[in-house]
Computed example of a mutant assay.
Amino acid sequence: MTNANNMELLHEQREELIGVLKARFEKNMHRHEGIEWVNVQAKLEAATEKLWSLNEMENTGGEPDVVGYDNKKDEYIFYDCSPESPKGRRSVCYDRAALESRKKHKPETSAMDMATAMGIELLTEEQYRALQKLDKFDLKTSSWVETPGDIRKLGGAIFCDRRYDTVFMYHNGADSYYAARGFRGSLRV
Protein backbone atom coordinates (compact mmCIF):
# COMPACT_ATOMS: atom_id res chain seq x y z
CA MET A 1 0.00 0.00 0.00
CA THR A 2 1.39 3.40 -1.02
CA ASN A 3 0.01 6.90 -0.87
CA ALA A 4 -2.14 8.52 -3.56
CA ASN A 5 0.67 9.36 -5.98
CA ASN A 6 1.70 5.68 -5.90
CA MET A 7 5.43 6.51 -5.92
CA GLU A 8 5.98 7.21 -2.25
CA LEU A 9 5.77 4.85 0.69
CA LEU A 10 3.83 5.60 3.81
CA HIS A 11 5.88 6.31 6.95
CA GLU A 12 5.30 2.82 8.38
CA GLN A 13 6.32 1.22 5.08
CA ARG A 14 9.53 3.27 4.96
CA GLU A 15 10.40 2.25 8.51
CA GLU A 16 9.69 -1.43 7.80
CA LEU A 17 11.74 -1.41 4.58
CA ILE A 18 14.69 0.35 6.23
CA GLY A 19 14.58 -2.32 8.95
CA VAL A 20 14.66 -5.11 6.36
CA LEU A 21 17.52 -3.45 4.46
CA LYS A 22 19.50 -2.87 7.68
CA ALA A 23 19.14 -6.52 8.75
CA ARG A 24 20.28 -7.73 5.30
CA PHE A 25 23.17 -5.23 5.32
CA GLU A 26 24.37 -6.45 8.74
CA LYS A 27 24.01 -10.12 7.79
CA ASN A 28 26.09 -9.71 4.60
CA MET A 29 28.96 -7.38 5.56
CA HIS A 30 31.26 -9.08 3.02
CA ARG A 31 29.26 -7.38 0.23
CA HIS A 32 30.09 -3.85 1.42
CA GLU A 33 33.26 -3.80 3.51
CA GLY A 34 34.14 -0.34 4.78
CA ILE A 35 30.59 1.02 4.40
CA GLU A 36 28.68 2.02 7.52
CA TRP A 37 24.93 1.53 7.77
CA VAL A 38 24.34 4.90 9.46
CA ASN A 39 25.54 6.67 6.28
CA VAL A 40 23.40 4.45 4.02
CA GLN A 41 20.34 5.07 6.18
CA ALA A 42 20.84 8.84 6.05
CA LYS A 43 20.88 8.68 2.24
CA LEU A 44 17.78 6.47 2.18
CA GLU A 45 15.83 8.77 4.48
CA ALA A 46 16.64 11.73 2.24
CA ALA A 47 15.52 9.98 -0.97
CA THR A 48 11.95 8.74 -0.61
CA GLU A 49 11.56 8.05 -4.34
CA LYS A 50 14.56 5.70 -4.14
CA LEU A 51 12.95 3.94 -1.18
CA TRP A 52 9.91 3.33 -3.37
CA SER A 53 12.14 1.66 -5.99
CA LEU A 54 13.92 -0.41 -3.34
CA ASN A 55 10.52 -1.50 -2.05
CA GLU A 56 9.58 -2.61 -5.57
CA MET A 57 12.84 -4.57 -5.75
CA GLU A 58 12.01 -6.17 -2.39
CA ASN A 59 8.37 -6.93 -3.28
CA THR A 60 9.39 -8.76 -6.46
CA GLY A 61 11.88 -10.96 -4.59
CA GLY A 62 15.11 -9.14 -5.38
CA GLU A 63 16.49 -8.84 -1.84
CA PRO A 64 18.36 -5.57 -2.62
CA ASP A 65 21.60 -4.92 -0.74
CA VAL A 66 24.44 -2.40 -0.86
CA VAL A 67 27.30 -3.63 -3.06
CA GLY A 68 29.39 -0.48 -3.35
CA TYR A 69 29.85 3.25 -2.98
CA ASP A 70 30.67 5.74 -5.74
CA ASN A 71 32.92 8.38 -4.16
CA LYS A 72 32.68 10.78 -7.10
CA LYS A 73 28.88 10.83 -7.13
CA ASP A 74 28.41 10.23 -3.38
CA GLU A 75 25.99 7.38 -4.10
CA TYR A 76 25.47 3.94 -2.58
CA ILE A 77 24.93 1.17 -5.12
CA PHE A 78 22.26 -1.46 -4.54
CA TYR A 79 21.93 -4.68 -6.56
CA ASP A 80 19.38 -7.46 -6.31
CA CYS A 81 21.09 -10.10 -4.17
CA SER A 82 18.46 -12.86 -4.07
CA PRO A 83 20.04 -16.30 -4.47
CA GLU A 84 18.08 -16.90 -7.69
CA SER A 85 16.70 -14.47 -10.27
CA PRO A 86 13.87 -12.57 -8.51
CA LYS A 87 10.67 -14.66 -8.59
CA GLY A 88 8.39 -11.72 -9.28
CA ARG A 89 10.37 -10.79 -12.39
CA ARG A 90 10.55 -14.06 -14.29
CA SER A 91 8.80 -15.18 -17.48
CA VAL A 92 9.45 -11.86 -19.21
CA CYS A 93 10.98 -11.22 -22.62
CA TYR A 94 13.77 -8.66 -22.97
CA ASP A 95 12.10 -5.39 -24.10
CA ARG A 96 8.96 -3.75 -25.52
CA ALA A 97 9.96 -4.36 -29.15
CA ALA A 98 10.41 -8.08 -28.41
CA LEU A 99 7.07 -8.21 -26.61
CA GLU A 100 5.26 -6.54 -29.51
CA SER A 101 6.93 -8.83 -32.07
CA ARG A 102 5.44 -11.97 -30.49
CA LYS A 103 2.34 -13.16 -32.30
CA LYS A 104 1.28 -15.83 -29.79
CA HIS A 105 1.74 -16.54 -26.09
CA LYS A 106 2.98 -13.09 -25.16
CA PRO A 107 4.36 -12.65 -21.65
CA GLU A 108 2.72 -9.99 -19.47
CA THR A 109 5.60 -7.55 -19.83
CA SER A 110 9.30 -7.24 -20.60
CA ALA A 111 12.36 -6.93 -18.38
CA MET A 112 13.14 -3.42 -19.64
CA ASP A 113 9.55 -2.18 -19.17
CA MET A 114 9.38 -3.65 -15.68
CA ALA A 115 12.74 -2.15 -14.68
CA THR A 116 11.69 1.27 -15.96
CA ALA A 117 8.40 1.08 -14.06
CA MET A 118 10.34 0.17 -10.89
CA GLY A 119 12.84 3.01 -11.35
CA ILE A 120 15.83 0.66 -11.64
CA GLU A 121 18.23 -0.48 -14.36
CA LEU A 122 19.12 -3.96 -15.54
CA LEU A 123 22.59 -5.06 -14.52
CA THR A 124 25.19 -4.94 -17.27
CA GLU A 125 27.27 -8.05 -17.93
CA GLU A 126 30.16 -6.36 -16.09
CA GLN A 127 27.97 -5.59 -13.07
CA TYR A 128 26.59 -9.13 -13.10
CA ARG A 129 30.12 -10.57 -13.03
CA ALA A 130 31.06 -8.20 -10.19
CA LEU A 131 28.00 -9.36 -8.23
CA GLN A 132 29.05 -12.98 -8.69
CA LYS A 133 32.36 -12.18 -6.96
CA LEU A 134 30.42 -11.33 -3.78
CA ASP A 135 28.39 -14.58 -3.56
CA LYS A 136 27.10 -17.37 -5.80
CA PHE A 137 23.89 -16.37 -7.59
CA ASP A 138 21.63 -17.92 -10.25
CA LEU A 139 22.69 -21.51 -9.72
CA LYS A 140 19.29 -22.72 -11.03
CA THR A 141 17.95 -19.64 -12.83
CA SER A 142 19.29 -17.05 -15.26
CA SER A 143 18.99 -13.27 -15.55
CA TRP A 144 18.64 -10.97 -18.54
CA VAL A 145 21.39 -8.33 -18.59
CA GLU A 146 21.63 -5.07 -20.50
CA THR A 147 22.22 -5.98 -24.13
CA PRO A 148 24.54 -4.00 -26.44
CA GLY A 149 22.67 -2.18 -29.22
CA ASP A 150 24.38 -4.05 -32.05
CA ILE A 151 23.18 -7.41 -30.68
CA ARG A 152 19.70 -6.07 -30.00
CA LYS A 153 19.38 -4.65 -33.55
CA LEU A 154 19.84 -8.18 -34.84
CA GLY A 155 17.02 -9.50 -32.66
CA GLY A 156 19.10 -10.95 -29.85
CA ALA A 157 19.53 -10.30 -26.15
CA ILE A 158 21.97 -11.63 -23.56
CA PHE A 159 21.54 -13.29 -20.20
CA CYS A 160 23.85 -14.75 -17.59
CA ASP A 161 23.93 -17.45 -14.95
CA ARG A 162 26.38 -19.44 -12.83
CA ARG A 163 26.99 -23.13 -13.52
CA TYR A 164 29.96 -25.35 -12.71
CA ASP A 165 31.31 -22.55 -10.50
CA THR A 166 31.67 -20.36 -13.60
CA VAL A 167 29.69 -17.31 -14.75
CA PHE A 168 28.37 -17.76 -18.27
CA MET A 169 26.96 -15.22 -20.72
CA TYR A 170 24.56 -16.53 -23.37
CA HIS A 171 22.32 -15.21 -26.13
CA ASN A 172 18.71 -15.81 -27.05
CA GLY A 173 16.06 -14.17 -29.15
CA ALA A 174 14.92 -11.06 -27.25
CA ASP A 175 11.32 -12.27 -27.54
CA SER A 176 11.99 -15.51 -25.66
CA TYR A 177 10.93 -15.97 -22.06
CA TYR A 178 11.24 -18.76 -19.54
CA ALA A 179 9.93 -19.50 -16.06
CA ALA A 180 13.52 -19.69 -14.81
CA ARG A 181 14.73 -16.42 -16.39
CA GLY A 182 14.17 -13.00 -14.87
CA PHE A 183 16.39 -10.00 -14.39
CA ARG A 184 18.47 -8.35 -11.68
CA GLY A 185 18.47 -4.62 -11.19
CA SER A 186 20.64 -1.86 -9.81
CA LEU A 187 19.79 1.38 -8.07
CA ARG A 188 21.96 4.28 -6.92
CA VAL A 189 20.99 6.21 -3.79
Score class of each variant (00 low, 15 high):
residue 66 V to Q: 11
residue 89 R to A: 08
residue 116 T to S: 15
residue 58 E to Y: 08
residue 140 K to F: 12
residue 175 D to P: 06
residue 10 L to T: 12
residue 116 T to V: 06
residue 82 S to N: 07
residue 29 M to K: 14
residue 95 D to I: 05
residue 110 S to V: 06
residue 108 E to P: 05
residue 26 E to N: 12
residue 123 L to V: 09
residue 167 V to G: 11
residue 69 Y to D: 11
residue 52 W to H: 14
residue 72 K to C: 05
residue 145 V to R: 08
residue 45 E to P: 02
residue 80 D to L: 03
residue 99 L to D: 03
residue 69 Y to V: 08
residue 51 L to R: 00
residue 97 A to T: 13
residue 75 E to W: 10
residue 135 D to L: 02
residue 93 C to R: 02
residue 123 L to Y: 12
residue 86 P to Q: 02
residue 25 F to C: 05
residue 50 K to G: 09
residue 172 N to G: 09
residue 48 T to G: 03
residue 132 Q to F: 01
residue 137 F to A: 06
residue 149 G to A: 14
residue 94 Y to A: 00
residue 109 T to R: 02
residue 147 T to M: 02
residue 77 I to H: 07
residue 16 E to S: 09
residue 109 T to S: 14
residue 6 N to I: 12
residue 182 G to K: 07
residue 151 I to R: 13
residue 66 V to H: 06
residue 101 S to F: 12
residue 7 M to A: 04
residue 66 V to W: 13
residue 64 P to S: 11
residue 47 A to V: 02
residue 103 K to P: 00
residue 5 N to G: 04
residue 158 I to V: 13
residue 172 N to S: 12
residue 88 G to T: 02
residue 151 I to A: 14
residue 133 K to R: 10
residue 183 F to R: 01
residue 103 K to L: 11
residue 13 Q to N: 08
residue 181 R to C: 03
residue 144 W to F: 07
residue 50 K to P: 04
residue 163 R to G: 04
residue 149 G to Q: 14
residue 52 W to N: 12
residue 135 D to H: 09
residue 138 D to E: 14
residue 15 E to F: 05
residue 92 V to G: 00
residue 146 E to F: 05
residue 20 V to E: 00
residue 91 S to R: 02
residue 112 M to E: 15
residue 100 E to K: 02
residue 106 K to R: 10
residue 146 E to K: 13
residue 8 E to G: 11
residue 102 R to A: 05
residue 86 P to R: 01
residue 160 C to F: 04
residue 161 D to K: 05
residue 18 I to M: 09
residue 145 V to Q: 12
residue 180 A to N: 15
residue 23 A to N: 13
residue 162 R to V: 08
residue 122 L to M: 13
residue 145 V to I: 14
residue 62 G to W: 01
residue 73 K to Y: 00
residue 137 F to K: 03
residue 188 R to S: 13
residue 157 A to K: 04
residue 32 H to D: 07
residue 163 R to L: 13
residue 117 A to P: 05
residue 138 D to F: 15
residue 140 K to Q: 11
residue 67 V to A: 01
residue 33 E to D: 13
residue 73 K to N: 06
residue 104 K to C: 02
residue 60 T to W: 08
residue 168 F to C: 01
residue 74 D to K: 09
residue 49 E to S: 10
residue 45 E to N: 11
residue 14 R to E: 15
residue 41 Q to L: 04
residue 40 V to Q: 04
residue 23 A to M: 04
residue 68 G to Q: 10
residue 3 N to F: 09
residue 170 Y to D: 09
residue 94 Y to R: 01
residue 74 D to Q: 07
residue 113 D to F: 00
residue 182 G to Y: 06
residue 10 L to N: 12
residue 118 M to D: 12
residue 173 G to R: 05
residue 124 T to G: 10
residue 148 P to E: 14
residue 102 R to N: 03
residue 70 D to S: 00
residue 173 G to W: 08
residue 163 R to Q: 15
residue 138 D to G: 07
residue 146 E to A: 08
residue 101 S to Y: 10
residue 74 D to H: 04
residue 11 H to V: 01
residue 142 S to P: 13
residue 176 S to D: 11
residue 120 I to M: 12
residue 167 V to I: 04
residue 171 H to S: 14
residue 129 R to T: 03
residue 105 H to A: 13
residue 51 L to S: 03
residue 154 L to H: 14
residue 162 R to H: 14
residue 96 R to M: 07
residue 45 E to V: 03
residue 101 S to Q: 13
residue 36 E to F: 11
residue 61 G to Q: 05
residue 45 E to M: 10
residue 103 K to R: 10
residue 57 M to P: 14
residue 130 A to R: 14
residue 108 E to V: 12
residue 26 E to C: 06
residue 169 M to W: 00
residue 97 A to H: 09
residue 19 G to F: 08
